[in-house]
Design a protein around this nucleic acid. Sequence first.
DNA 1: CGCTCGCAATGACGATTGGTTATAGCTGCG
DNA 2: CGCAGCTATAACCAATCGTCATTGCGAGCG
Lengths: 295, 295
Amino acid sequence: MDAGDLRVFEAVARLGAMNRAAEELHTVQSNVTARIRQIETELGTALFERHSRGVVPTAAGRRLLPYAERVRLLLAEARRVVKDDGEPAGTLAIGSLETTAGLRLPPLLAQYAAAYPAVDLSLVTGTTAALVKEVLDHRLDGAFVCGPVEHDELVEERAFREELVALTSPRIASLDALFGERDLKIIVFRIGCSYRQRLEAILAGRGLIVTRSLEFGTIEGILGCVGAGIGVSLLPRAVVAEAARDGRIALHALPPAEAQVDTVFVRRRDGFASSALKAFLALARPLRVRSEAAE
Amino acid sequence: MDAGDLRVFEAVARLGAMNRAAEELHTVQSNVTARIRQIETELGTALFERHSRGVVPTAAGRRLLPYAERVRLLLAEARRVVKDDGEPAGTLAIGSLETTAGLRLPPLLAQYAAAYPAVDLSLVTGTTAALVKEVLDHRLDGAFVCGPVEHDELVEERAFREELVALTSPRIASLDALFGERDLKIIVFRIGCSYRQRLEAILAGRGLIVTRSLEFGTIEGILGCVGAGIGVSLLPRAVVAEAARDGRIALHALPPAEAQVDTVFVRRRDGFASSALKAFLALARPLRVRSEAAE
DNA sequence: CGCTCGCAATGACGATTGGTTATAGCTGCG
DNA sequence: CGCAGCTATAACCAATCGTCATTGCGAGCG
């Protein structure tokens, strides 16, 4: 039983059929059958129950499955470690909330890309929950998300502290004045956006229950909608300061307990941090200090 | 690069020569050379510097080395997990201090052996430091050692609480009376015995500096030597109670802070606990309660 | 009931890889 | 220089792996 065996085993277990596994592995069914049988005889245990519609793992197979993934991940990590000679290189996949990506990251990313041209840097945006999952599944090296996360397998460090402000149409003088409005909606980036729950809680604290919502993919979309009086949103102050100066929207400060939100950088605790990631952290950490000092 | 490749890589790195690695792997040198070269071309990096007297790992090779072991351990664990159907079976290697092995374990081991005849149980004795190392190196499933250990990779739970008593010849009325003795020695099981440091500290606290020591492999040896007035020892009360009743030696109680010692059971935190080990823990835990209640 | 569909098992065969043998080349040492 | 100890390389052999074609089996369906 070596790494190759476990790869075919994993494919069969996941797809539930040697046929499809063979297809995915770019080989033929008989080959998969033979290798599975070989592993089974080597281990002295049946790993699958064969049925006419496919195969299902036996208890032993279910026990083996997690090891197939662990071995795969470990070998992949070994390859990366061997190639990583301390000079940041290769790929670095970072995740971020939409607002953080727009507000805080551009200078950081530009600086990083200039300093380490050998790194293939990629940035994906998403919600906190989605990004955390991506990090856990080894698809992202790390992510800026809404903290705290407090997950056993992750290590997090505070990156930025934002002041959230409520956004409304310029016609609205204060949050309390929202009571008169009809058909009010919560306007957020996406379903599952981290700020959404917080906004709902803030409004609920003022006696406003708003269940309908709109999702946008861009800041501009949110600003336009809020300005038109369609709803209320919650965003970091710095993101919307300009729009407020232009009179397109009104900002409503919140008490610190409601306004303060920490953006944390999460990464996996286990395994190894590539040189590319280490360099990124080294570049990002000073920002955190500056951000704290600015308050 | 699969598991087999890593095994030959590991042998070459450890032995510092493809020649000797080939011998250990029961193959020939050219084969080892070829596989190493193949891994190197696959990874695109040299893993060894070749010299006329052998090979030394490059920086990349040194980075890869720990992964070779981790993959090996992970695959070995996978095999065990597959075979482990919940019914305790296979091997169970337990370590223990000599005194614990003699005093506490016999009924436990007998009970375990009777309840789980399918398990090939083995017990080795040694010092705390040696046993901890054996556990860390996967050579023991767990060990009873002198606590606390407080190692990141280990989980420990208190098993027994012993009262240590000082042993002297019957002629000595108290520890303070030792001042008159000449050529006094510390008598312990072995170099590195966990109780040795404690005994030295206890004597030092009474103004006695004893640097010479004797080591024995059996309780009887220690008792004989102590009884003959050659030295002083420190052992759990229960171990030596009978000898004291017979008048062969004198016991000297110590204040609780010095006398109390916890015997803890340590095992690796990571990985998995075999059914054989789980069953052992299930059997051992009630003993702990009884031991505490007896105080 | 018999047909077909989807899937696994099997056996024969070619391709690729891994292992073996023998030999050459390098380096430090007496 | 020649020896000892090591690695590199080429040629050959064996085992494994992958492929193709075929068989067998159970489920679903007309």
